[in-house]
Structures are given as C-alpha cells and as structure tokens.
Design a protein around this nucleic acid. Structure first.
Lengths: 344, 344
DNA sequence: CTCGCCCGTCGAAGCGCTTCGATCTTCTTG
DNA sequence: CAAGAAGATCGAAGCGCTTCGACGGGCGAG
C-alpha cells in the first residue's frame, strides 16, 4: 500500500504539502502541485480511509437505513436507496447500508463509532422509535418520510396529502361522486406509517370539499386479497364509479378483477393510482397516477445532509420539505357512465 | 466522545488491557475483565471505527455493488442486498452500498483506501469488466452470479440451467410437446447476463432431451410489450400449450392476456415461472414456479467471504456454488388440452 | 537599502486504537 | 528449594493522515 509519506518522498516535498494539495486547505504553488499530482498518479496513491477519518474525525460516510419489511412496494425503496448512493458519491460520500431491523441501536453504533457522520432514515413511522435519539443532539439526519411531530427534524417527503387531494379533484372534475380507495396493507396503517395516513387525510379533505363520497379500505397485495376487498366495496357501495389505489401490488389484480367482472376502464369505472411511475405506465391499462418521486427524494435527502455537514456548525436547518405531487393523466380515468335508466 | 484511554483510567488498568478485553486476543483475568466491562458500560464507550481500521488494517466493512438498472426485477435485488446486510451484521461486518454505475473504479477506490476489505458483486455479466481486477490479486470477493469464466473466482448463484431444465421436465411430464419461453428484456441478453443465458441453455437442453419443441422470445416488461410478443408466438407456433416465463414484469400481463383471449390457465395453457417466489404466489393464478432464493444467495455470499477473511491468508477458496433449484407446483400447470377434434 | 508582510512550505504533534515485547507474579517441577 | 514456565498486565511504538504554528525568502513600501 502506498502512503502519503511515500508520495511526499517521491515528489520531494513534505507530507503536509501533499496533504494540502489533496485538501486544498492551503495555497500550494502551481509547480509543486503539479509535481505532487504526478507522483500520486504514478504511484497510484489512495488515501487510507481509516487514517483520514481518525485524523479529521470525518468519515465521509452516510448511513442509510432501509426497512426490510416486504409489505410495501420495494422498487421504490431500492430506487431511493440507489438515488441516495449516487447523490452521495457526487458529494464525495459513501453510503453504509443499515437495515431497519436493528432500530435505534444501529444508529447509535455507526454514529457513536464515528463510522458514519450522518444518517438517512427511510420508512419513517408517525411515532418512530428512532426519533428521540435524533432529536437528543443525535447525528445530523434526514428522514425520508414525515413523523407525527417533525419538530427539530429534517424531513423530505412527497406531499401525500396533496397527492390524495389531487386524485379526488381529478375524479371530481370528471364528474365522479362516489370514490373507493384501495389502500396499503392493514399492517402499514397499524404501524402508523406517515405517508399512508397523510394520503388518506388528503383524500378525505378533498372529498369533503368537493362533496364526494369516499370509502377507504386497506388491502393486502396479491390477487385474492384484492378480490375480497373489491367484492366488499362493490357490495357496500354499488354506486362507486372510481377507484384510487395506493398499493402497487394491488394495481394489476384490481384491473384484472374489474375486467373480469365486466367493468371497463375507464368507460365504466375510473382508476387513479398513487404509486411508482413505472408501475402506472406499464399496467395493462396505463393508469392516471401520482408518481412517487423516488430519485428526487433520495437526491434531496443527500443534498440537505451535505449542506448541513459543511455548514459552520450549529446552524440547525431542521426543516420539512414536501415535494409537490403531479398527476399524470393516462388512460384509466374518464367521466363516469351516465346514470342507469337514462340512455345515452 | 469516550476513548479507550478514558475507559482504561476509569477501570484502573492500561489501555492495552482494555483492548485485550475487547478483542480477547490475550487472556485477561476474570476480575479485571469484569471491571473493564463495567467501565465500558458505564461510560458508554464505543471504539472509534477509523482508529480501529487504521491500527488493525481491518475495516470490518464489506462493499456490496448493486446494479442500478431497472430492466431486471428489482425486489430480488433488494432482498439479496438486505440479506447481505443482515448476514454481514451477524458476523460483525457492515455493508457499504455501491452502485454498478461506477464500475471497476469504485472497487479500486473502496478497496485501495482500505474502506472495505472485501466485495460482493451482484448482476454479474458473462464477461464482466470488473473481473480482471478481482482476479489480479484483487480484494477478497464473491460474485452473486456466474461469469463465463469463473476460474479463480468465488461465485454463488442459483443453478439456472437446472432451473430451466426443471421447468421443461415438469411440463414434459404433464404431456406438453410445444413450449414457448418468455424471457427477460432483450437488453439483459445483449449484456450477456449469465443467469438469463444459463436458464435458456437449461431449457434448450431439457427440451432436446425430452423431444419438446421450444421457442424463446425475449420480452420487455409491461402489458403492451408482452401483448406483442405473445401475439407473435401464438402466430408462429399455434400448437404451443405451455409457457415458461422468466421476467417478473411479464407475469401478470401474460396471465391477463391469456385470459382475455379466452385461454384458461391451466386448462388450455400451462404457465411456469422462474421468478421471485412472492410474485409467483401472488399472481392472479398462483404460478407453478422455480423461486430465486434471494435470502440464501445473500447469506451464502457473506458466509463465504467471512470464512475467507478469517482464514490464515492465502488459502484461496475460489469455488463456484450453485444452489439447487426447486420447483413449486401451484395452480398454473396441468396437462395440455386433448388434441383438437378428439372430444374428451 | 532595510523593515515587515505575505506566500509557500515544513516539522511535529496528535487522532484512538492495536500489538509486540517486557515485566512482574504466581505456580510448577526436578 | 531454586529455576523456569505460564499467566496477567503494562508501556511504547506505530498505523497514515490532518493541522497548527513556525520558518524562510521574495516583494513593496518607507
């Protein structure tokens, strides 16, 4: 392994000079810099990460905690994770992968040992057990998601309430008066995962404002579960003319079931989804949908973290950033069919 | 931050003693050990990761390189990644997340800087550009996947050839004589991703052995793409009575399309998949399938790495491990319909 | 022409930990 | 009963890097 000292010797300068060339924290004359750079190149020098972290007490590592549950749509999670990794690299950081499993203790571990200088948390619950740790002078952190009380925390998320409202508005504009919502797994609500509840609130508020009837049902993924939920909905509210789906694994089963029971989309019923853009676009009927901006979320989380890390200490930037949702109209939403008995 | 020295002072011993208590590399008397442990506990001491890595030249970090392509089924990737993280933690290692984007240079970086002591590579291609680096006295590495020439490399993967053969055998046993394969995206084959090609070979060999006609067509995900491919297959080979699908995003569209064109599964056509178990189980017709053992793959990769790392240097364990596939019979496969004209 | 200043560079002191003798006991054994 | 073995602990020397204060030489100003 090549060390700083060897580079220094090779370039005929002192170790500190090489260090300053690398960090740019002090001016180095052009010829010297060139010489050092050449030596670095020639010897294939790579600074030792541990030594660096020790001397500077900055590891240049961000810990990313991803849930390991499987009842939520996974591709979005991976997409965010990859976006985080990519954005982090762009700022010279690496990403440490933590699973939600370990909870707060994992945060303490990587943070207390100086392994990671900051953390990004995904799948934040309304009353997350990791929050106290972060508020109590914990490490710099950004949550992807919004807890019940974001006070003193740095959060980024899609404005799911607005997303919900957007869906209702779109359908109300088309003339729908009775809407059913097929939601995430019951487990997601039971855990009080913020985004699910916020979407629901947005849907309800929107419905109230537009005088639309709304029925919400959580739903497991998979064909059979959706079949059950759908049957109950249609039984309870035969007048439903539109669905809002917030559960990627329910999308295709729903379309299949509607088709099978003779309901054409969008002629007989409209469907709007809140889900990964790709899922909506590739569905058997391309769905009008509000996409979850995974890339954007990951990128934004990193940027805020990095901004905070390089800011002159103490300047607390705890703030909530809610991305504005956008509804993409595809083929699955249209006006409701004319009321029965009134021929077209 | 609490340091080793403070713990030592608090416990009334020398720093080295504390270190030996922690590492167990020298015998420490019971009372002393107890005292040191108590001090550690009381002060909330956490060893500094960087200092440790510097002094011992072991970072206890494994780098995991995940692809960031989206044309392959993502949940399996995440599942493997999470399994790797979990298994690594069980052995006292942490996992650094690398995206495939950066290629060999990322490996050189994390490895050359001592950030990671070993790497796990996912989405390995037959002629992967990262391989030369690994063979040339690179860092300890395990590939999840199988390149064209695994010589000198440590690989774990599902035996996709056997998986392919298994599918054909199952269908042949049921009496099918003409099978169509709906494969991964053309891009996957163009990249020469090992698993896709190996599955295909297994399918072809199996078909040859059993005297079954086989037609293979790559296929993008999404409804429309599947529709196109399916139409062409049915046109070209009207006698097809069974499908093997190796493309998670094609599964549901295929079932939808078969249904819509009046083909009942499994009465008229059988469908067998090679995909994530959950996808097969939750499909609108639960699919007979060969599952991809994501957990197992991740775990195994870590175990081999850890075994190698703690082995007395030089004992090269380059070896290929192919997991034996298992076919789970669900509702989507049955005997072919009786030949036309011959009433049942 | 000389003083003081700034620019560019160097030396040395750590950062917190591991590890290798060395030291001091306490046993064991011939 | 002395000599050596074995056990328990200590001290010190780094690991490779950052960073702070110091230093020397060239320059403009007085």
């Amino acid at each position: 392994m090549v060390t700083l000292a060897e580079v220094a010797r090779h370039a005929g300068v002192s170790a500190s000079t090489v260090s300053y060339v690398l960090s740019g924290k002090r001016p180095i004359s052009d010829p010297t810099r060139r010489r050092v750079r050449a030596s670095i190149e020639q010897l294939g020098y790579q600074p030792h990460a541990g030594a660096r972290a020790l001397a500077s007490s900055r590891s240049r590592i961000i810990a990313l905690m991803v849930p390991l549950r499987t009842d939520m749509y996974v591709p979005v999670m991976l997409e965010i994770a990859v976006a985080v990794a990519t954005a982090a690299r762009a700022h010279g950081y690496d990403v440490l992968l933590l699973t939600g499993e370990e909870g707060p203790s994992a945060l303490r571990r990587v943070t207390g040992s100086g392994l990671a200088e900051a953390v990004i948390l995904m799948d934040v619950q309304l009353d997350d057990e990791r929050l106290p740790l972060l508020r109590a002078a914990g490490p710099p952190a950004v949550l992807v998601g919004l807890p019940a009380d974001p006070e003193g925390l740095n959060c980024v998320d899609l404005d799911f309430a607005a997303a919900g409202a957007l869906c209702v508005e779109h359908l109300a504009d088309l003339g729908h008066r009775e809407i059913a919502v097929i939601g995430e797994s019951p487990g997601v609500y039971a855990r009080h995962t913020g985004f699910a509840e916020r979407t629901l609130r947005g849907l309800r508020d929107g419905a109230a404002e537009r005088g639309v009837r709304l029925l919400h049902r959580p739903c497991e993924g998979g064909h059979d579960a959706v079949a059950g939920v759908l049957a109950r909905i249609l039984d309870e509210r035969p007048g439903v003319t539109a669905f809002v789906v917030q559960n990627e694994t329910a999308v295709e089963p729903l379309l299949t079931l509607l088709r099978r029971t003779g309901r054409a989309v969008p002629e007989d019923v409209s469907v709007v989804a809140v889900c990964a853009g790709q899922v909506a676009a590739q569905a058997s009927v391309p769905l009008s949908s509000v996409a979850i901006p995974a890339q954007e979320l990951g990128r934004s989380a990193v940027e805020r973290l990095v901004a905070g890390l390089s800011r002159p200490e103490g300047a607390d930037t705890a703030r909530v950033e809610l991305l504005t949702p956008a509804l993409t109209v595809r083929d699955s939403s249209g006006p409701p069919p004319p009321p029965a008995g009134v021929g077209s």
